[in-house]
Structures are given as C-alpha cells and as structure tokens.
C-alpha cells in the first residue's frame, strides 16, 4: 500500500495532506517531507490524516520526531481529521496528551 504526500505552503502555514498507509515502508518518505517543514520558526505544520486508515508504530515515530523538532525550532505541529483506528494508537501511547490533535472527521461537525 502506498502513501501519497501532498504539501501546500502558505506564508506561516504548511498543510500536509496524506492519503494511504503509514508503515515501515512509507514512513521514511514521510519523515523526509515532514521534518524540514518543522524547521521554520513560527510556522504551523498541519497534517491532514483524513485519508489515513492505517498507521503503525514506525509512523508514530515520525510524528514524535516532528514534535521534538517543533520544540527545538519554535514551530507548531497540528494533526487534523484523525481516524478512529489511528487515534487509538496515539491514545495508548499517551501522545494525545502532548500533541495538538483534532480528530473531528471531515463532514462531522
């Protein structure tokens, strides 16, 4: 299964729209795209996970390193439209407590 990564850059915000599965095969590609974005001071990086139905722990690792990088570079990471199965993973690992996550699925509210 593949992962499509689509990046739209605005002045203070980058929107990364993902579609597919995030696993050991696709995670390196995501890391390569996502990490540089978090290195701009003051920038908000919004990751849209509406079309991601599966993520394994390697995927979590990418978001953890992105989060660490935002702390270092004074930028912000926001995960939106997270699906339930993926959300479970963030909840178990305690990451929902320290990450900015909006799990409202598109069209919900």
């Amino acid at each position: 299964m593949n992962l499509t990564i689509d990046v739209t850059n605005k002045e203070h915000k980058s929107v990364v729209t993902l579609s597919g599965e995030i696993d050991a095969f696709t995670a390196p590609k995501l890391k390569e795209e996502l990490l540089p974005l978090t290195k701009d001071e003051g920038k908000t990086v919004e990751v849209d996970l509406n079309n991601v139905n599966y993520m394994d722990s390697t995927g979590l690792g990418v978001f953890i390193s992105a989060l660490k990088s935002t702390k270092e570079h004074n930028s912000e990471l926001k995960l939106v439209h997270m699906q339930e199965r993926v959300h479970r993973l963030f909840k178990i690992t305690g990451l929902t407590e320290i990450m900015n996550i909006d799990s409202t699925v598109q069209g919900g509210i």
């Binding site: 979590l60 953890i64 989060l67 660490k68 690992t93 305690g94 990451l95 407590e97 320290i98």
Partner: peptide, 12 residues
C-alpha cells in the same frame, strides 16, 4: 494505566 511512551519528554 496512563503514561507516555519512553524517550519523548524528560519528565514524564
């Protein structure tokens, strides 16, 4: 039991 994965923040 609630708790963050190891290795993310120092003071978990």
């Amino acid at each position: 039991a609630p708790g963050l994965v190891l290795g993310v923040t120092k003071d978990a």
